[in-house]
Amino acid sequence: MINSFYEGVIVTCCVNIIAVLGMSVLTGFTRLFSFGNAGFMAIGAYTAAICSVQFHLPFALSIICGAVAAGIVAYLLGSLTIRLRGDYFLISCLGFGECVRVLFLYLRDITGGATGYTGIPFRTTWVVALVCAIAAFIIAWNLIHSRYGQAFSAIRENEVAAAANGIDVVKYKKMSFVFSAIFAGWAGGLYAHYLRHITPVLFNLPKSCELVITTVLGGLGSLTGSVLATLVVQLLPEFFRKFSEYRMLAYGIAVVLVILLRPAGLMGYKEFPDLFKKSGKKKSTGGA
């Protein structure tokens, strides 16, 4: 029905959409930058893989274990670091991501070290991936439009005023951080059950950067923008296979261009449906 090349493209896109949606809630709506979310993907991937292979848990349960493990680690890390100001928090996340990667490299008995963890059953078909991505979008959308999402946006806009209005800033920041980690873990688990063989290199610093860059490209504060940007970032290299070595170069140029030309990202604060609303409004209100 669908050949393995397209299946690969769809699964990769969907997995990244889930991870980027998590980033979008964290970075776009709460304005916390994390360069360590590949670390959470790794935790999700390895936990889910080990659950499947060693404990023969059903696929869905393995994925949930992976996501929960990432969430727990994020909660513990967040308890320590969430009070740090902007750039210091970013650096602590960066350090964490690298720690996870190196740790998985050294724990050879559990993770297989640099040669990777093999024998994971193939479970993430393109249908599974697509269903998960849609579910992830719905969950993120509902979160953002709940009073929790309102609190996230308030923190993004003005932390002092948010606190003055009765928002427990630390609690909500941590919630946002854990949420993004759960999504990253979910994505990692799915990815592991697609690749069937995972190595720590998959979840290195460039992967974290890719997630952040995608979120920034899509617009900080737009879930649909994040999805759009993920599709662009994931699909373009597929069409330009020959130049895949220059991937990061292209990202860099793309980010510079977007920052210069569209500082708010592809979508800015707008969601996809807003684009149509806006144009309709202009017509009706004319010059007002």
Binding site: R147, Q150, A151, S153, A154, E157, N158, V160, A161, A162, A164, N165, I167, G221, Y269
Partner: peptide
């Protein structure tokens, strides 16, 4: 200290 990038209604909801 209002939230500039939130609408008036969203400000009130915060």
């Amino acid at each position: 200290q209002i939230f500039y990038k939130l609408t008036v209604l969203e400000n009130l909801r915060v």
